[in-house]
């Protein structure tokens, strides 16, 4: 099992000690999936128009 975090675009998600402490106590790994989209495509995804094209995020 894994905790899966999707992140679209550039930038930096941050985990605080409080979240990491909880994940560690549950013996859960935390996995990030980074997907880069050109800006115009990202706008459509945010609008929900092409959300179905994201596909399956299965490792």
């Amino acid at each position: 099992m894994t905790v899966f975090c999707l992140w679209c675009g550039d930038g930096s998600p941050v985990l605080w000690p409080e979240q990491m402490q909880g994940l560690a106590a549950l013996n859960l790994e935390c996995s990030f999936e980074f997907t880069y989209y050109p800006e115009e495509e990202l706008d459509e995804i945010v609008d929900g128009e092409t959300i179905g094209n994201l596909g399956e995020f299965i490792p």
Partner: peptide, 13 residues
């Protein structure tokens, strides 16, 4: 343009 890292509980602890 895809993929991502994984942290294990050992690092997060």
């Amino acid at each position: 343009g895809t993929g991502g890292p994984t942290l294990w509980p050992e690092q997060m602890r």
